[in-house]
Design a protein around this nucleic acid. Sequence first.
DNA 1: CAATAGAAAATTGCATGCAATTTATTCCAC
DNA 2: GTGGAATAAATTGCATGCAATTTTCTATTG
Lengths: 229, 229
Amino acid sequence: MSTNLSRSDAIYASLRRAILEQALKPGTKLPEDSIGDTFSVSRTSARNALLRLASDGLVEIKPNRGAAVAMPTLEEAEEVFALRRCLEREVIEKLCRRMPRDGIDALISHVREEERALQASSPRSIRLAGEFHILLAELTGSKLLIDFISQVVSRSSLILARFGRPHSAECGIDEHVQLIEALKEQDAQTASRIMDHHLHAVEDRAKTDDKDDGPDISEILNRYMTASE
Amino acid sequence: MSTNLSRSDAIYASLRRAILEQALKPGTKLPEDSIGDTFSVSRTSARNALLRLASDGLVEIKPNRGAAVAMPTLEEAEEVFALRRCLEREVIEKLCRRMPRDGIDALISHVREEERALQASSPRSIRLAGEFHILLAELTGSKLLIDFISQVVSRSSLILARFGRPHSAECGIDEHVQLIEALKEQDAQTASRIMDHHLHAVEDRAKTDDKDDGPDISEILNRYMTASE
DNA sequence: CAATAGAAAATTGCATGCAATTTATTCCAC
DNA sequence: GTGGAATAAATTGCATGCAATTTTCTATTG
């Protein structure tokens, strides 16, 4: 049970967390050697993890030039949020038709955790805000929908890291609470309206363009080697 | 220019074509050795190709047990078509708002090619039917939308290979023609209606459950080694 | 001093080898 | 002849090594 994860799985998970919590900023180069060294594995395992992250859109791999944390453009950002609105609307509709028992409870308890992380100024709060939306998708029970939502949520985090205010949490937690209320009442129209407003707010947070790159990768990664949440 | 593709790219493309044209049926095992041998490359390259196909949902990889062409369940099939309707509706709406010049021409010319392939009873017709929908997505200009549509279209092909009548083309070509007409008139409502009807027809074609597996892989793959269209 | 050509270092793409796990086969008891 | 354990074959997960490409540094020239 302890080593149920393969080595490349562990690296994939750690890198993913580091990117989503904005410890690794867009543009940061990710050489296979450095990653293999810091995780004490070979380049092969690191490479596989990078390939998977690339298909998630979290890193970009250019032939013979290596991998780097993806730098979404403003154009791509618009595409992501347009598609995200489309997908999250589908989630809301599905959930208003059929919400699993304990679903509301799970959502409430997640929001509580978000609040705790926010008060503690933990970097987890950034990731938890995104995972609220993933939890919504999970409640629909559709594997594919979970997968697609995860992708747009991940990319949204990246967009906020690139364009948003530094370290701003992605979502207003109060809006999450409002959404839960509407879902409880099975009010699809209100829920959709809140979600649209919520996503527009997130999108608007992508305004200022600050950037700096290239600190020590290994230093950052050492904090993300553990598989713990 | 001749070898702009890396080795694993070529294998990925060939395997993908073979799966989408239903030469490789769901459930067929894909051992790294066999693939490497038939393409005259090492297991490493074959492995990378399989990893990418797995993230597309076209093959399933179980730890220490190898890869096989994915066998979608009826449950997953429902998920795919539900999401596909959602995404294709978005495509239609976008295209009715703004259709690129020459877009209609490109669609018409694609349908012509579909007709030619169908008359020639070419296995290409199966793939071309799916690529009509991908072409629609491409006309929206959204990279992400193209990506997502490609995924659901690929999975649809797999579902038809698993559950549909053998070698039935996925789509009725006449419905494609009707859709083009509605798009030309910028009639989003009619276009959406046709698309919904069209996709339901495709979904209904997933009824009978026939199966047989396991011919010689290498024999099939040899026909797909060329990088041709 | 700027610019460019060339060499050196770094990094990726791929092949091969080995240990570990899984699958198939053999052999023996019943 | 059947069921099950032990063994053999096949297959994956991973590490290492080498050639090819890219990037960085250096030196020479104008």
